[in-house]
Design a protein around this nucleic acid. Structure first.
Lengths: 248, 248
DNA sequence: TCGCGCGCTTGATCTGGGTCAAGGATGACC
DNA sequence: GGTCATCCTTGACCCAGATCAAGCGCGCGA
């Protein structure tokens, strides 16, 4: 995560429960203060679709809590997840009308939104924001390209390890912890959602998770609660060199 | 290609041989005129590396002629191409020092470059540019995500057809032609480079090209010169609905 | 308490694409 | 014209992961 704005991420807002990496009236300079006026919250239940690909999307926003996914579907039903939206991630395309992908809430979801039109006029009048958005978009692009390597060249076991290490790391940084010592977290995705992200079948996902468990790379309590005793071991299984840059 | 700036693409500059989609002193408004002062050209021979991943990259620029690729390599040598740079494509990360990927010239290559520092200060003082860059980066992000579907869910035959249709379309728009009637172009990539882009082996690429030829989807003169008699047939083989948005 | 559904696991078998190997074409250079 | 290297094609075989199928476990509503 080359461009994580720690100073912003760690800044709390009482009415905007978590620190947006994106844009947040309180976390930013005074010139953004009037964003407050166009800000609102939306909540979604697990399984609900936030927007359908191609639909008009009249807001932008960031995830406050919960998980959402971006997916593409072919006519015959094959689907590929192209993005995983965790708390603090930004959604929306300034300057674009239609959503490019289905956005689906995989857990209960709270988003902090800004109406698109006013937000866009802010972007044109406040250079700071365009640059911030550019930086974030470059981060997303890096993440997408990193994932292309995963999809194109990694084995099923490496794919699973890659996904687990992303989730583990994101979870750790979100809770302001490091990646030393055992990491504990809940998988926010079903086996099927994982398979959509990794370009595998859910059976293969299940088998490889069992294999990683059997080999002591991870421990499982129930189906979703994961303990990673040694993060660098997991990174190694993912085929990344131990401190290499993974997805933000 | 949702955001192709036709007006700019079709605008010729005598000293800047082709119309940059990115930024070009002559093609843009007067406020950008002084970019001329920091502009220079670099040429590379086929096979030469433009920058290595991790190296400091002190310029940004766009491809004038020739083809370059962005690739990632794992420690064990597996490689995945994450971007294909055709004429008019932009290279470089404003706000980042290191190159994220290897950039390699696959043909003789001419780039029109701007030194990074002055370019960046332009970005901060000229809001117009940051917005333009944002738009371009969003296009690249869409392309990367489109490619994730190709890598994760398409068969070898569909992958080849997808790649051919991207190259055919890019070639057509670059030469200001439409995609009606037979399309004729030269493959700018070796079978190996294609395999790196598609997450396949070069043998599979070769076999699938032979199969598409045998089935009349494409015609080959020699190993590189391709004729596509019916573009929508090719799109169909790629698994895209006939007018769906592919990579820009 | 029972059933029912959903998410998950595991087994058996199949197959698309990888791997290994043997040439064929083309062009550059002597 | 011959040699050599590079790029490409094709064949034979193999294996990781897909597919098909059966069954488990847990939460929920009646």
């Amino acid at each position: 995560m080359p461009n994580d704005q720690i100073s912003v991420v760690s800044h709390d807002c009482e009415d905007c429960p978590i620190r947006h990496r994106a844009v947040c009236a309180r976390c930013e300079s005074d010139e953004l203060r009037h964003l407050e006026e166009i800000k609102f919250y939306r909540t979604f239940e697990a399984g609900q679709t936030v927007v359908w690909a191609g639909d008009r999307m009249d807001f932008v926003g960031s995830v406050v809590s919960g998980i959402a996914t971006l997916t593409q579907t072919m006519e015959d039903g094959r689907t590929q997840m192209v993005g995983l939206l965790l708390p603090s991630d930004f959604v929306g395309r300034p300057g674009r009308d239609g959503a490019a992908y289905d956005v689906v809430a995989t857990t209960d979801l709270v988003m902090c939104c800004f109406r698109k039109k006013p937000f866009e006029s802010m972007v044109t009048t406040t250079p700071h924001i365009a640059q911030r958005l550019l930086e974030m978009t470059l981060d997303e692009l890096d993440a997408a390209r990193e994932w292309m390597l995963v999809l194109g060249r990694k084995t099923a076991r490496e794919k699973i390890a890659s996904l687990l290490s992303i989730i583990a790391r994101r979870d750790a940084t979100l809770n302001l912890r490091g990646t030393e010592g055992p990491l504990v977290f809940d998988l926010p995705l079903t086996r099927e959602a994982m398979s959509d992200y990794l370009g595998l079948t859910l059976e293969t996902v299940s088998r490889q998770i069992s294999a990683l468990k059997r080999d002591g790379v991870i421990e499982l309590q129930g189906k979703r609660h994961v303990t990673v005793p040694d993060f660098s071991r997991l990174m190694n299984e993912a085929g990344d060199d131990a401190d290499g840059g993974m997805l933000a």
